[in-house]
Design a protein around this nucleic acid. Sequence first.
DNA 1: CGGTGGAATCTGGCATGCCAGATACCTGTT
DNA 2: AACAGGTATCTGGCATGCCAGATTCCACCG
Lengths: 228, 228
Amino acid sequence: MSGVSLRINPIEESVSLKARIYASLKQAITEMNIYSNDAELRLDERELSQKFGISRTPLREALAQLDQEGLVRIVPRRGIYIVRKTKAEILDMITVWAALESMSARLATKGARDEELAVLHELVDQFSHDDMARRMGEYSDANIKFHQAIIALGKCPLIEEITKGLFIHVRAIRQRTIFEQDRAHRSVVDHKEIIAALEARDTERAERLVREHTLKLRDHVERHVDLD
Amino acid sequence: MSGVSLRINPIEESVSLKARIYASLKQAITEMNIYSNDAELRLDERELSQKFGISRTPLREALAQLDQEGLVRIVPRRGIYIVRKTKAEILDMITVWAALESMSARLATKGARDEELAVLHELVDQFSHDDMARRMGEYSDANIKFHQAIIALGKCPLIEEITKGLFIHVRAIRQRTIFEQDRAHRSVVDHKEIIAALEARDTERAERLVREHTLKLRDHVERHVDLD
DNA sequence: CGGTGGAATCTGGCATGCCAGATACCTGTT
DNA sequence: AACAGGTATCTGGCATGCCAGATTCCACCG
């Protein structure tokens, strides 16, 4: 046998137009600051299909999927609108998030190995220093990654899938969330306690800490974020 | 002003074909025993469109929605298949259900009025007698209604929506779940304890009881139900 | 000047037809 | 009889065009 194996190229798996349009639109909507006052929230089927250079059929299928997912709303004979979530809906999402992430923490205390838990340190320890004020943006990203990491450690694919959908919407209002330095500090403290509970395999405590931490965010949004 | 107001009939809001096809297919698939060995799991776009008397376009949109929802799987140039959930997926669903229902119980201890909690009694007390053996079928229905009632009392629409999607799949394997009389008895005992905790406004206990009760079902399915 | 009627236009819903990938079947060769 | 090659056929993806509900705008009338 030759030492040089045939390098098969990953066969250009021709993804359907629908799937590509869907991904493109989803990213565009997600990255758009829809809570800005001058945001254009109306979409036009024909205009978009021309912009993408395709017909309306696959575009419509992509839009229908976004509609079901709650990112846009298709109103018959009226138009297609990017949805702004109401405050109540955002709060509900955070509640679901709390329920699922705390369950993930519970599962992680039982099913994750020590090496796996170690990745959490990397996402928190870099912010132990007092340069946090200058790095609020980075912290915001690391914050989300920390929570996603806990969910991943629960090793329940369905929970990962559901929360991924929630993060999209919650991220959208993150820009409106005023991250006071004080809050960030307390957040880091919370995170360290959570890691400690996970490593100690203290199931009940890990669940409780995660739940309370997320519900704290819920309260914060409820009191200090103004939507609608 | 006249004391007799004009009684406007709710204008027959013509629902789109897509929506009607979707509902029809969903019900058909849900009610079908897809875990039977001789179940026909393949669908044909053209055949269905003829059977419904419509064109393929709205049918395709309905199928795409069912695909996203996980009820069917569309494979390009191969066919459309009704999906059988794997055992692992069913277990994951029950896990998510446990997380969300226990959160609902937590919320219910804080946000539900006493009169609202009272409805739970009706769903359980009728099975206190010892004629349960003959009424396993009814019990199975009342069981699901009990859990849905708790979720409703949590008053979080998003949780209701997510769990409604889960129930569809979990119900499908209910037929394969052997409800031994013993299990049903213990289930009723659990339910009564849950009601008591809710009425006592004991948040932590209510959450724990609901979670443990549902995870008990998870263990039962894991050990005694054979899929795949 | 205000209000009404209607026509032009905009928008999503749906039907129809063609296309390419994939499969199944059939035929001819060895 | 076994296999290779090609062809008919099946299936979902996509383009195109028409339709009806809804809106907008303007002319006409009181």
